[in-house]
Simulated assay, not measured.
Amino acid sequence: MSESLWPEDIPTPDSPGWQEAAAEWLGRQLPPYLTADPYLGGSPVLTAWLGRHHLYGQIQGVRESHATARIRLASLAGPALGLELALIDRVLEPLAEEADRLSRLERQVWAVDDALAAARWGTHRLPPERDGGGGAAGAGGV
């Protein structure tokens, strides 16, 4: 596990109480539907697993938006709808930043999930390689 992937708010897995801290951290990072339910939120392993899949879907959605924004929104540009072409380009930067943020978070959730699995099963699982890089973001972000 790379230290750069490990969330700063969670003690390292060799520290006492790290699993409780991991559960609290997951609860702050992920949507309430994954953490508010006593059954779902009561299991850090389940929360991390669901969180990984939730984040993967979010990343894919942001990437799709970024990849298609210029083409799809250009057809809507014009004074009638109040959408200027210059505004379309301005939406790309926040989308790229959000993809980077979500990718970092996904890698952190993977690290926590891996540590939870190692604590339970004594084995590590690495995140899948997607798009030629580490984690869902790939080497180049969006």
Rank of each mutant, 00 (worst) to 15 (best):
W49N: 14
G17Q: 06
G133N: 12
L50T: 09
G141Y: 06
G61Q: 08
R120T: 11
D89L: 12
R107D: 15
H66N: 08
A21C: 04
A137S: 13
L26Y: 02
A136Q: 08
P7W: 06
P16V: 10
D14F: 07
W25M: 04
G133E: 06
W121L: 13
R63C: 00
E93R: 15
E20V: 15
G42D: 08
Q29T: 08
A119S: 15
L87Y: 07
T12K: 03
A69G: 00
S15D: 09
S103T: 14
E64V: 00
G57V: 02
L95G: 15
A111Y: 01
G132D: 05
S75G: 07
A111I: 05
A117K: 09
R120Q: 14
L105Y: 01
P32W: 11
L116G: 05
R70Q: 05
Q58W: 08
W6Y: 12
G122L: 10
Y39W: 10
S43Y: 05
R90E: 14
G42R: 06
P38G: 11
R52V: 13
A99S: 11
R70G: 04
A69T: 07
D37I: 06
A137H: 04
E84T: 08
L116F: 01
P79V: 13
E98Q: 15
L73G: 03
L92I: 13
A96Y: 01
